[in-house]
Structures are given as structure tokens and as C-alpha cells.
Design a protein around this nucleic acid. Structure first.
Lengths: 200, 200
DNA sequence: ATAAACTCTTAAACTAGTTCATTTTTTTTC
DNA sequence: GAAAAAAAATGAACTAGTTTAAGAGTTTAT
């Protein structure tokens, strides 16, 4: 069967961990909602109750909170083939603390809370898929939370470039600073310094 | 049916997310290995290949890495009713970077890689259990990784006391410093300062 | 019960990262 | 394609957290 590009992408993502029959694939796709967000528009804002978990099929988004001083702290960047959302709010139905804003025109597939529950009833194999997806995410967040407290800002920047070479060129230095956990001014100094080292 | 204390503890932990029949409970328990670790002994050391994922039934352990300078960075403290291990090494079969050391005489239940796989074949419901367990862990690690980069050491200490009141009195100040990501000297200053504030 | 080995406290000098202010460069908008 | 807005660079003064050192208080092992 021939699927549209975004559907092929999400089915391939799922095929990393579980095999679906044609029927299951179609059932699964029927549970998803297509969403588009223009650059600079919000997919989610603090105070809202999170309705969906998202898979990005095109574009780039940043997920962040604002602290009491209004300074942004970026939790992740999400590009094609990434999953994002606010799982805490999605599960608890409490209002989210996060903003998700498109940094490029973006296209997503969303699964609602009701369909997420339904999915496990209809195709129990998805328990395994999410078990493995969460397991992988967990491994990378454990690493990140350790790096956040044990590495210098410069080392975190070098790690980021190594781990996300595709993302580093699509985001502003300012947003990268918000992810690394430093000011844009200090980010600028680090980049100058690291590039000087590499070119010498 | 009447179970020994450690078995009741782990079965209750699992019952938060899935219901098991008596037969399934017994099957599950048969896949576990009992382990005891004396205070100051290692459950795991960097370079080893991780054989088990662990559930603590008694005691307290610290999970940490050593950086190039030999300074410890504590990833988590695990007490009764907590799960621990190095999932990255457990899954990939690569050598671990972690040390796990008992800070009190401890008792654990371990599941081996082979039995973990077997578990999903024999009792597929466990996919759901681990999906939900990892989902919850993920939520708390996402929060921690954000706090690591966006909160001051003093705020992280206050958060830790609030979130883990049972743990804070069982560990040394030095180990807490290793978790918060600061030196023991600065930890001492923060504690003096925070207690002074509270008593005034 | 005592020595040895840690852990905690305090303080002075230091460094990584912040803040604030200004200028230059790049991107967005009409 | 010019004007406006946002991002990036640079520098000086500042603050949170480190380092080193030394002494006091606790825990551990015999």
C-alpha cells in the first residue's frame, strides 16, 4: 500500500520497534489528527490542558518554560521524526507549564488522549512500542540530567553539537543558550572560543 | 496467598499499574533473583556489563559516575520501593559508566536481561507495566534535567528536600552535594543559610 | 576505648557564568 | 529594497559557585 509522505514517516518510526499488519496501520493512522503550525505560532501555551501528543513530520519547534523573571528555558527542540508534547499534562490533565512554538512552518500528527487509550485496547502491541520509545527517551534524559549538573557550559555545547548535528544549524544561538542553560551573551563567547580552537 | 515481605512490596509496586493472577504473580517472582549488598559494597562498577535491573526491598544505595578528575556525580539515590540499574548498559550490553554502592545494608530483587525478555513473552501485560513505569520516570527526569540547567543550587536543594523527604535524612551532606551538582563546601553553606532562613 | 578515617564548617582567593550597556550584523516585514 | 526588528558580538562590573587549606566533630574498626 502507498501512503502519503508523513504517514510513511510515522509508520517507519513505529516499525523500529513493532511490526504492524496493513489493517493495523490503517487503524492507527485513523486515530491521528493532522496539524499545521506557521512559524512563530504556538502549538501549546502554559495554562492550557494538553490535548495531544505530537509527532513532527516537517519543520522545527521549541519546547520551553518561562521562569518568574520571564527568561525562557528550552527543554527540547523537535524536528522531523521526533515525538514531543507535555506528557505530564497529557497524562494528568493538569494545565501545562510549557510553551511549544514553531521556529519553522511545521506539520505534525497528533494523537488525542482518548485515542491514545483506545490505541492500547485496539492494538495492544503499542504498549510495547511506547515501552521501548519511553525507555530510549529515558536513557537520553538521564544522561542529560547528569550532564546538566556535572558538565561546564562549554562541554554541554560540544555535546549538543555532537549529538544533534542536524538541529544545531536550524536554531538561533539565543535558543541554543536557552537549551544549554546560559545567557545568549555567554553562548556567543563560548561559540567564538570553540570555533577559534577548531580552526587553529 | 501469603508472600514474604519483599515479594509483597514488589507485587504492590506492580499492582499500581497492572493486575496479575496468582499464577502470574508466582511466575513473575520465579524470574527474580534475590541479592544482598553490605554497606559500602558495590552492586555495580564502571566497566562491567550490567546483568540486572534492580528493585530495592530494603536499604539505600547511590548511583554515580566519576568524572576525569575522579569527582563523583550522583545520578540517583534508591531506597525501598525504588527501581534502579543502568538501563543503557542493560539494554545495549555495553559496559556501564556507573557505580552503584550501598550506603546501608541493602536487599534487592534483580531481573536478568534474559528473564526481562522472557517476561514480556510469558506475561505481555508487563509491556504495559513498564510502559507506565518508564512514562512516570521520564516525566520526573525531564523535570530534573530542566531544573539542573535553570535553577540555582539553593533552589535545587529546596526542591530535593520537598520531593524526597524520606531520603534527605538517610544520606550524607557530601553525597547530597554530589547529587545537586556542587562541592560539599558550598552544600554546607547552603544548608546553613536555608536553615537560618527557616528559623528566623 | 582509642586511633584512624571520614564528614562538616569556615574563610580567603579565585573562576565560570551573569548583567547591563553599546555597536554591528542578520532577518523580517511592508 | 528600505526600514524596523531581532540576533549576535564585545566589554566592564558583578555574583554564584570552586578551590585550597585548616580545624572541629562523627563514625568506624580493632
Amino acid at each position: 500500500m502507498n501512503y502519503q509522505k508523513s504517514h510513511t514517516l510515522i509508520l517507519n518510526n513505529i516499525a523500529r520497534f513493532i511490526d504492524l499488519t496493513e489493517l493495523e496501520k490503517q487503524k492507527y493512522l485513523s486515530l491521528l489528527t493532522e496539524i499545521t503550525v506557521k512559524k512563530k505560532a504556538f502549538l501549546m501555551q502554559a495554562g492550557e490542558i494538553t490535548k495531544y501528543e505530537y509527532f513532527i513530520t516537517k519543520g522545527c519547534l521549541k519546547v520551553y518554560t518561562l521562569d518568574e523573571d520571564g527568561a525562557p528555558h528550552i527543554s527540547m527542540f523537535a524536528i522531523e521524526d521526533y515525538w514531543t508534547g507535555d506528557m505530564a499534562s497529557f497524562m494528568s490533565k493538569d494545565p501545562t507549564n510549557y510553551f511549544i512554538k514553531a521556529t519553522e512552518d511545521s506539520e505534525l500528527l497528533g494523537i488525542s488522549r482518548a485515542n491514545y487509550e483506545l490505541l492500547f485496547q485496539e492494538i495492544p502491541k503499542f504498549e510495547r512500542f511506547y515501552r521501548m520509545l519511553y525507555q530510549r527517551s529515558l536513557i537520553s534524559y538521564i544522561r542529560r540530567s547528569n550532564h546538566g549538573i556535572s558538565l561546564s557550559a562549554e562541554q554541554r555545547y560540544i555535546e549538543f553539537k555532537k549529538k544533534y548535528p542536524k538541529i544545531v544549524n536550524r536554531i538561533t544561538q539565543k535558543d541554543l543558550a536557552g537549551y544549554i542553560g546560559i545567557t545568549p551573551e555567554f553562548m556567543s563567547k563560548i561559540i567564538t572560543k570553540v570555533n577559534r580552537k577548531q580552526n587553529s
